[in-house]
Design a protein around this nucleic acid. Structure first.
Length: 285
DNA sequence: AGATCGCCCTGCTTGC
DNA sequence: TGCAAGCAGGGCGATC
């Protein structure tokens, strides 16, 4: 599942292989892939034609390409299974190819959006004055953004009446964290996922943020090294799927700190993995 | 308005 | 062997 590090790898790929190129033709092969483009696939294709790609940007799990004079942007979200691939034009279509973007140059490659589960998609939007696609103005800065405000984040946690994992996944508080990295950062912090955010001290919040950043940077380092070909790697399952995880997916396996079998608990229609000894539940939950 | 919940979607795995 | 249920889960809209 692509979270911040995976999306950043894709952003770098887009920057390298598509910046400065002008769109010649667009094919929308599945309407759900452009569902956030409210005026439909035909309008999406017509409006994108002739526009020039700028340098790809990212906030949290969203990425976007400023177009022409950056009055608008091509916005993308990978959902759970989305891929953006730069492929030779003659390459056989992927089974789940949803959108094809051809360029007007002679480089011989095209951009493809491939998505099995169709939770992701592409769309066109106007930009806010600070260059953000208007529909993601509510997305908070991510922890790798130099302008992320640690103090404001801590104060927001203190005011919320929620639990720490819900807060980590709330993209309006902090963006880019998904189920995998949330569990990893909580394990490193020895925090139970149901700990009320109002009980976190400033040092605990600082420690948690530090672990979020560490685990993301480590994943990014691994993903970055495998990205060296004519290929924007976005596959959440193949890229660096074998990255070492301490919590996620390790039910019944020994905790790497204390040896206690790790547990999985159903949580918000998904799962939380944690060590029952290192990550004690709060007294009142 | 903050918090919570259900829904969207497909392919692989598990269980009867 | 076949079929159904379970699971993966980010984001958004509806609801309280």
């Amino acid at each position: 599942m692509p979270e911040l590090p995976e999306v950043e790898v894709v952003r770098r790929g887009l920057e390298r292989w598509t910046a400065g190129r002008t769109v010649e033709d667009v094919e929308v092969l599945h309407p759900r892939a452009v569902r956030r483009h409210l005026s439909g696939g035909g309008d999406f294709a017509a409006r994108l034609r002739g526009l020039r790609f700028g340098t790809a940007m990212r906030r949290g799990k969203y990425l976007w390409v400023p177009l022409d004079e950056a009055e608008s942007s091509l916005l993308g979200h990978l959902g759970m299974s989305g891929q953006l691939l730069v492929q030779p034009e003659e390459a056989v279509d992927e089974k789940h190819l949803r959108i094809r973007i051809r360029f007007d140059d002679a480089l011989g490659t095209e951009l493809r959006f491939v998505d099995q589960r169709t939770f992701g998609g592409l769309s066109l939007h106007g930009n806010t004055p600070d260059g953000l696609p208007d529909v993601i103005a509510h997305i908070a800065r991510d922890p790798l953004d130099p302008a992320f405000d640690d103090t404001a984040f801590h104060l927001a946690l203190r005011l919320r009446r929620t639990t720490v994992k819900r807060a980590l996944l709330d993209q309006s508080l902090i963006s880019g964290v998904g189920n995998i990295y949330a569990d990893e950062a909580l394990w490193r912090s020895k925090l139970h996922y149901e700990r009320p955010t109002a009980t976190l001290t400033r040092p605990r919040t600082a420690e948690l943020l530090g672990h979020v950043r560490d685990v993301m940077r480590e994943a990014l380092d691994q993903g970055g090294t495998s990205f060296d070909s004519l290929y924007v790697n976005v596959n959440g399952e193949s890229g660096y799927f074998d990255r070492s995880l301490d919590a996620y997916g390790r039910e019944d396996e020994p905790c790497r700190r204390c040896g206690t079998p790790m547990r999985r608990r159903p949580w918000m229609n998904r799962s939380s993995y944690f060590c029952p000894r290192c990550q004690r539940p709060p007294r009142v939950s």
